[in-house]
């Protein structure tokens, strides 16, 4: 296969010029997202450049502890994003959600790198960082949908929930339908994207691998495994996040503690 073609500065400038089209449409239609778009573009550029520089060193050093630290930093950032996104109180959620993210990310990464790719070094930067990042990114999205859906749904349907407790349900029995709905909402985007992958969209990882010069069949095999990893990771993390947080969020009588919600 061909070596990957680097994008030089002028190429990057052309890429950014392409943004004039969506920005013109936004301005013409007065869509109120101009400020958000500008902030997002600046953040994306700065964050990715920073990560790019950092990853260059990370890959060069390929130190297990440094790789682990990087993954943990990503998890802490994801943890904060989830709690902010769900409008929940950090003191109740930060630690259990972090543990859920850790388990949901670690299992697919270790299986992928250790068992499938048989790398002697489980935290090899070339594999653990991008795979961990992809799984974690999806866990973040799924946790926001799942946790927010779970707690908001119980708050909205509090009367029905209390009625279930009054009928003699234990806590796990009473929350079971809400766990089911939260898992369904959180997993549906991954299930939907698995169903159309390759037909409607070529996924980013596969496209990147092909652009980097890999054989498309190899890229597809990687993509299949990563999709399975993402699905596994998101399912584990959402389920674990709900299970781990219920202890702090319901009182010993099974009643939802309303102080877990941050006011808007």
């Amino acid at each position: 296969m061909n070596d990957i073609i680097n994008i030089n500065i002028s190429g990057m400038i052309v890429g950014y010029i392409l943004l004039l089209v969506p920005l013109a449409i936004i301005l013409y239609q007065r869509v109120p997202i101009l400020k958000d778009t500008a902030i997002a573009l600046v953040r994306m550029t700065v964050q990715l450049l920073f990560v790019g520089f950092y990853l260059q060193y990370l890959f060069k050093l390929n130190n297990v502890w440094l790789n682990l630290l990087w993954l943990l930093v990503m998890m802490v950032v994801a943890d904060g994003s989830i709690i902010r996104g769900c409008r929940l109180r950090a003191s109740c959620f930060a630690i259990p959600v972090f543990i859920a993210l850790f388990i949901g990310t670690a299992i697919p990464v270790l299986v992928f790198v250790g068992i499938i790719l048989r790398r002697p070094d489980l935290l090899d930067a070339q594999y653990a960082i991008p795979i961990g990042g992809m799984v974690l990114g999806n866990c973040l999205r799924a946790d926001i949908i799942g946790l927010h859906g779970f707690y908001e749904s119980i708050r909205t349907h509090e009367k029905a929930y209390h009625h279930t407790l009054a009928q003699g349900a234990r806590l796990q029995e009473a929350i079971a339908p809400y766990v089911r709905d939260a898992l369904q909402s959180a997993l549906m985007p991954t299930v939907a994207s698995m169903a159309v992958i390759g037909l409607v969209a070529l996924p980013g990882m596969m496209t990147g691998t092909v652009l980097a010069g890999a054989n498309p069949m190899i890229a597809i095999k990687y993509q299949i495994i990563i999709m399975v990893g993402i699905f596994t990771g998101t399912t584990i993390t959402v389920f674990a996040a709900i299970r781990f947080t219920t202890k702090n969020c319901f009182n010993p009588f099974g009643v939802l503690d309303r102080t877990i919600f941050r006011s808007k």
Partner: peptide, 22 residues
């Protein structure tokens, strides 16, 4: 109390003014 509430609820039935039965 928090230990007996689960057993106590097995001795009670409740009908609300506007029952929300799911």
């Amino acid at each position: 109390n928090e230990y007996h509430v689960w057993n106590i609820r097995r001795q009670l039935a409740y009908v609300a003014q506007e029952p929300n039965l799911g």
